Computed example of a mutant assay.
Amino acid sequence: MRKIKEVIVVEGKDDTVAVKRAVQADTIETNGSAIPRYVIDQIKLAKEKRGVIVFTDPDYPGQRIRSIIDKEVPGCKHAFLPKNEAIQKRGKGVGVEHASSEAIQQALQHAYTTNEEVEEVITHEDLILAGLIAGGDSKKRREKLGQFLKIGYANGKQLHKRLLTFRITKQQFTDALRYLEQEGYHD
């Protein structure tokens, strides 16, 4: 079983159980999107001592938690789980706790570090030209692009920020677009 050096931030106990089933790691639980100050302080300390990987559910509350942590503790790594890998087998639940060990391992292996000082490489116009914004199939294309790049699903505005934040290069972006074309998601 692979050992993760960084402390993994998850939303709750069930997520901790799923992560520990997949890898050897320590976790910090936020217990929801209203993150208490003491939890932020724990995350800051963990980042200083060992590093942190934020690994939240692929939904709005999970994104909200990421944003809060990014603001309070900049420079953490982020791991993203595709929504289709996090859907409860019988029910409507979406979350890390429903993912397979393989999906969790894959997401953690591709964790990205955020950086506040972002140099624009991929432009808003690039996203429009690629059919990722304002097109009939743009939502599905963004979803597949996020899966390919391991950065998760985002709306158009969030996608641009995420591509810049995680320093996705023009070449990585071009490779992802080529993948979309091969999979039949034409702009």
Rank of each mutant, 00 (worst) to 15 (best):
E97V: 04
L163H: 04
L180M: 13
E116Y: 05
A22S: 07
K92N: 14
T114C: 11
E11L: 03
A154I: 13
H78A: 07
P82H: 03
L127K: 08
G95C: 13
G91I: 03
A111T: 00
L163A: 14
D126N: 06
R66W: 04
L164I: 13
K83D: 04
A103V: 01
E72W: 08
E120Y: 12
I28A: 02
Q171D: 07
Y60L: 14
F166E: 04
T56C: 12
A107E: 02
A103D: 02
K89V: 11
L127V: 06
L132S: 08
V17I: 13
T165P: 04
G184F: 06
E117T: 12
A107F: 02
Q182W: 08
V73P: 00
G75K: 02
G12M: 04
E97I: 02
F166N: 01
D57E: 06
V17P: 00
M1C: 03
E119L: 05
D70R: 14
G32H: 06
H160D: 07
V94A: 06
K157N: 12
E116S: 13
V73E: 00
K92H: 11
V118A: 13
V73W: 00
P74V: 06
T113I: 15
H124N: 13
F148D: 11
K20L: 12
A99T: 02
E143M: 08
D15L: 01
K44R: 15
P58S: 13
R178A: 14
K5P: 01
E119K: 10
G93I: 05
R21K: 15
I43S: 04
R141H: 08
T56A: 11
K20W: 02
Q171K: 13
L145R: 10
S67T: 15
E29G: 05
A99K: 01
V94M: 06
N31K: 10
D70H: 14
V7T: 06
R142A: 13
I87Y: 05
K77Q: 13
D59H: 08
I168A: 03
R66M: 10
L108Y: 02
G12D: 06
V39G: 05
P58G: 09
K49N: 10
E6A: 05
G12W: 03
K47N: 08
H124M: 11
H124Q: 12
G91P: 01
H186N: 11
